[in-house]
Amino acid sequence: MAIPARRRVADVAAFAFATTATVFGLVWLAWILWTTLRQGAAALTPSLFSQMTPPPGATGGLINAFYGSAVMILLGLVIGTPIGVAAGTYLAEHGRYTRLAAIVSFVNDILLSAPSIVVGLFVYELVVRTAGHFSGYAGALSLAMILLPIVVRTTEESLRLIPDQMREAGFALGLPRWRVTRQILYKAALSAILTGILLGVARIAGETAPLLFTALNNQFWSSSLNGPLANVPVVIFQYAMSPYDEWHTLAWAGAFVLTAFVLILNILVRLLARKGNQP
């Protein structure tokens, strides 16, 4: 029994559209990645990792930016992760059916999608103005505030996925609540929680806007967090908008390293997730 032509045409059209849409998405990905690689290739040399940001017209590297970014991301992680995991635990465990948890969960999602520039402004007013100077601490704090809701969300969701039988088994053995959470639940949800943390790191590694107002940037090497600190996104921003060709190449090279870092993290996340799902 043949399907009428009209319906068949609609089906073929849908098939064609879906395939085109996928190709469309993949084309952009390839174009962007290819551009980043090609433009930055000239600067992808070892000196990228050994020399500092140069003044206009000279060549150099990005090592002070890599260092500053690494330190601020780590510090943001150290600040944001414990708070995030603790809050997520509350939402999934102790506060599971309370009104507070519902409100916090909702509010957390707002914070999750808050424009990062608003977070930067908040930290500027709170920390930079009060301290009287830009600092890596302020930068790390704004990154922590962007990381926090991601960690809360994934912790809450991964803890909820654990069947209640596991909790009941722990109680049946006489374990107090905190031990059940720490020794049973966290262990079971570990890979999922790590996934969330890694996704958060991938997100904050590329954030520029909040750092503009908090850590500013630094032409020189600085190992002090208490002053302006060079970082990759702001350096890319400054160099990309400049008219100097050497700076452009450096900006693309920095962009390539940043993208590669984030992509590798994402792939790691996927591998971890798959491992975690295997019993």
Binding site: S222, S224, N226
Partner: peptide, 25 residues
């Protein structure tokens, strides 16, 4: 974490030993 602690402490050391290298913004 150890690396981070080292980085944070470095700032104190930096200012003590190389006090001639001031950072002006």
């Amino acid at each position: 974490l150890a690396a981070l602690l080292a980085a944070c402490n470095n700032q104190g050391g930096n200012q003590a030993s190389t006090s001639s290298v001031t950072q002006v913004t």
